[in-house]
Simulated assay, not measured.
Amino acid sequence: MKKASKDSVSGSGRKFCAFLRGVNVKGTNMKMAEVCAVFEKAGMKDVSSVLASGNILFSSEKEEEELKRILEKSMSEHFSYEAFLFVKSQQEIETIFRETPFEANAEYHIYIFVGVEGIAKILMTEFEKSRKASGEEAQLMGRNFYWKISKGNTLDSEFGKILGRKKLKDSFTSRNLNTFEKVLKKL
């Protein structure tokens, strides 16, 4: 029998956040209450959302990979689009947030990327090849990729344009540091 992890919830399972990619951008519009209902129908417990960008908190006894398959299938069927999401446990989210290498700064966005195994190294390679904006930085910490870019330059930077490539769309999603903090406070 497994020991309860420090991120377990009595009776409901472990706590997770599913980070959905491409929600409420480029015509993929959905209400978070409806997304939460899809998660509940798929068997998730204690479902709630954080912001309208597709951060869904829930509890489950299942493992991350199985949750990813179940939830992507449920979302794809319900909303008639190809859903991509990345599931992280409460413990993983705490670690990702704690390891953030950049200090919060009102003039910069700090993005944290979650995705498939190995994507952080691919993103770092692409970042290293790209022309940098003033003050733009990136770092790998463990298996995670972090990017700092001055406000107003996210989509105009060379690296920002690389992030929009279709071949990468099912490999990762990103959230800013503030979103991660809000997710952690609600978990």
Score class of each variant (00 low, 15 high):
46 D>W: 01
47 V>L: 06
48 S>H: 09
48 S>V: 08
49 S>A: 05
49 S>K: 08
49 S>D: 03
50 V>N: 03
50 V>Q: 01
52 A>R: 11
53 S>F: 07
54 G>D: 06
57 L>V: 05
57 L>T: 01
57 L>R: 00
61 E>K: 12
63 E>G: 14
63 E>P: 06
64 E>W: 00
64 E>H: 04
65 E>T: 13
66 E>V: 12
66 E>F: 11
66 E>Q: 10
67 L>W: 08
67 L>K: 09
68 K>G: 11
68 K>C: 05
69 R>E: 15
69 R>A: 14
69 R>L: 13
71 L>F: 01
71 L>S: 03
75 M>N: 13
76 S>K: 07
77 E>S: 10
77 E>V: 09
77 E>L: 07
78 H>C: 07
79 F>G: 09
79 F>P: 12
81 Y>M: 15
82 E>H: 02
83 A>M: 07
84 F>T: 15
85 L>R: 10
86 F>E: 05
87 V>Y: 05
87 V>G: 03
88 K>A: 05
89 S>Y: 00
91 Q>A: 15
94 E>K: 13
94 E>Y: 06
98 R>H: 12
99 E>N: 14
100 T>H: 13
100 T>S: 13
101 P>A: 01
101 P>V: 05
101 P>H: 02
103 E>G: 06
104 A>H: 14
107 E>G: 04
108 Y>V: 01
108 Y>T: 09
109 H>C: 07
109 H>K: 08
110 I>W: 05
111 Y>A: 07
116 V>Q: 13
116 V>A: 13
116 V>L: 04
116 V>F: 02
117 E>P: 12
119 I>D: 07
120 A>R: 05
121 K>E: 15
122 I>F: 05
125 T>W: 04
126 E>Y: 08
126 E>F: 03
126 E>H: 00
126 E>K: 10
127 F>I: 01
127 F>V: 08
128 E>Q: 14
131 R>D: 14
133 A>E: 14
135 G>S: 09
137 E>R: 09
137 E>N: 10
139 Q>A: 12
139 Q>R: 15
141 M>H: 02
142 G>E: 06
144 N>G: 02
145 F>D: 00
145 F>K: 03
147 W>F: 05
149 I>F: 13
151 K>G: 04
153 N>I: 00
153 N>P: 00
154 T>E: 10
154 T>G: 12
155 L>M: 09
155 L>T: 15
155 L>Y: 12
155 L>N: 09
157 S>Y: 06
160 G>S: 01
164 G>S: 09
164 G>V: 06
165 R>F: 11
165 R>H: 08
168 L>N: 01
170 D>A: 14
171 S>T: 05
171 S>A: 07
174 S>M: 12
176 N>H: 02
178 N>D: 03
178 N>K: 14
179 T>S: 08
180 F>Y: 09
180 F>S: 02
182 K>V: 09
186 K>N: 12
